[in-house]
Design a protein around this nucleic acid. Structure first.
Length: 428
DNA sequence: TCTGGGGTCCTAGGACCC
DNA sequence: TCTGGGGTCCTAGGACCC
């Protein structure tokens, strides 16, 4: 059979600009002229900055306590992360995109790939990119940039350039090979999708500093020296699409729930509470995607930044005889694991639960001598999930308790403007 | 005082088997 | 002197992504 390479494909990557910062600003027009940053969970470090904040050279990832003085001096507005708000706005952005193009892959909370091949209204890809931009701006008030290319990697790169160089006005189409050279030559290799810090270091040692130099490398050699992933990246940079659009969201293969504590935990009872909460979150996600977990892992650790006492961390895991999504079963198993790893003494900074070895709830292959998961349990859990969906935190395992000093700090939290009736923005 | 959280994929290496 | 060889499966850890 003849092998044909489809060279006419094109992808767009739509990425919201400074997404979390833009979400916060949306409901606070009074902050339009002020720089704004968003903090990570527990108000730990800076994870989003608006354009003005970037100009002030506030570094991404900077620990909050280190830049606090600077933020105050520059009158920067500070927000704790508000995932209820970002998640809701994200799904509105995605719905809008789905109306604009038939094939959409939701890649992250603030990005989506669109397949543009074969859309007849897409004769001029650049104009279509502008159309996406204005539509999202008009309907949701959020700024986005659009990168277009014959492969996902080039669409990503185009998006990077569309953001970086203002003359593109937020849209760049790199479908034409001659337009690429210029941009690729000016893009540092570590900006290429799939090339992180370590890989960039090794490439630079081989005198590959730019995306163009990587594009001109030999894929077979890259495969041999590095991995199949980098070989694919080289092909993608040359306009050969190796990665397809993944429209369907596959169920997750593992579910993690972990948090740093608001205050250090030294007491086992408090740790049990925290673990029980994390476990309930994880089990809820597990049931939401109709899965069961066979493996449960737990980890606890002190702080890596603590100078005075040595770092301590440990983890343990176990396999369930019957895969389960019942919070009570999983919680009991988690308590067992905690007994295994618990050591009195260290000041714990973080703990977490990992559910893995997941399988579909439907059509489960049970072990010969293990009891099948009970239907009663499934109905009970479904009922709890329903109640909690309506009123978050209304039903929980008693061990979890109501409050604890360990709970995360969110001192600068904005209201849940779009997901709670009692917190709707007021117009006066 | 104060340093995020949640994912995926790939590879290497050991265990085990024939 | 000389210690098979190839395949599969599993896990841990690294690297990457947002």
């Amino acid at each position: 059979m003849p092998v044909s390479i489809n060279t006419t494909r094109s992808f767009a990557l739509v990425d919201c600009n400074n997404f979390y910062a833009s979400c916060e600003r949306l409901f606070r027009p009074d902050l339009k002229q002020r720089p704004l940053v968003v903090l990570s969970n527990n108000d730990g470090c800076i994870i989003a900055r608006c354009a003005l904040a970037k100009q002030l050279a506030i570094p991404m990832g900077a620990p909050f306590h280190q830049v606090k003085a600077l933020l105050k001096q520059q009158q920067v507005a500070v927000f704790s992360s508000n995932y209820a708000l970002y998640g809701d706005l994200s799904s509105r952005v995605m719905q809008t995109l789905e109306q604009l193009a038939p094939k959409v892959e939701i890649y992250s909370i603030d990005e989506a790939f669109l397949e543009l091949s074969g859309l007849d209204f897409c004769q001029n890809l650049h104009d279509f990119g502008q159309h996406i931009r204005t539509t999202i701006k008009q309907q949701l008030g959020l700024p986005v940039c659009v990168g277009i290319g014959p492969s996902k990697t080039l669409a990503k790169l185009a998006n990077y350039a569309a953001k970086k160089y203002p003359q593109f006005e937020g849209v760049l189409d790199l479908t034409e090979p001659h337009k690429r050279l210029h941009i690729l030559a000016r893009t540092p290799v570590h900006e290429v999708w799939g090339v992180g810090r370590k890989l960039a270091e090794r490439l630079q040692a081989m005198n590959i500093d730019t995306a163009l130099q990587l594009a001109r490398a030999c894929p077979q050699q890259m495969r041999k020296k590095f991995s199949v992933v980098l070989a694919r990246t080289v092909n993608e940079l040359n306009g050969l699409a190796c990665l397809a659009l993944d429209e369907v969201q596959e169920p997750k293969q593992q579910i993690i729930s972990s948090r740093s504590f608001g205050q250090r935990v030294t007491d086992k009872g408090a740790m049990q509470q925290a673990i029980t909460l994390y476990l309930s979150r994880a089990a809820e996600k597990l049931r939401a995607q109709q899965s069961l977990a066979r493996r449960l892992s737990l980890f606890i650790r002190s702080s890596r930044f603590e100078q005075k006492s040595p770092f301590f961390g440990d983890q343990a895991s176990l396999e369930l005889a019957t895969p389960s999504s019942d919070s009570r079963v999983l919680q009991q198993a988690a308590m067992q694991l905690l007994d295994q790893v618990w050591r009195q003494g260290p000041a714990y900074a973080k703990a977490g639960i990992v559910l893995s070895d997941l399988c579909a709830m439907q059509g489960l292959q049970t072990q010969l001598f293990a009891p099948p998961p009970s239907e009663r349990s499934q109905r009970l859990m479904a009922a709890i999930d329903q109640l909690n969906q309506k009123h978050r935190g209304s039903v929980f395992i008693a061990r979890q308790g109501k409050d604890g000093d360990w709970q995360m700090q969110r001192r600068f939290l904005s209201p849940a403007y779009t997901t709670r009736w009692d917190q709707l923005p007021e117009v006066r």
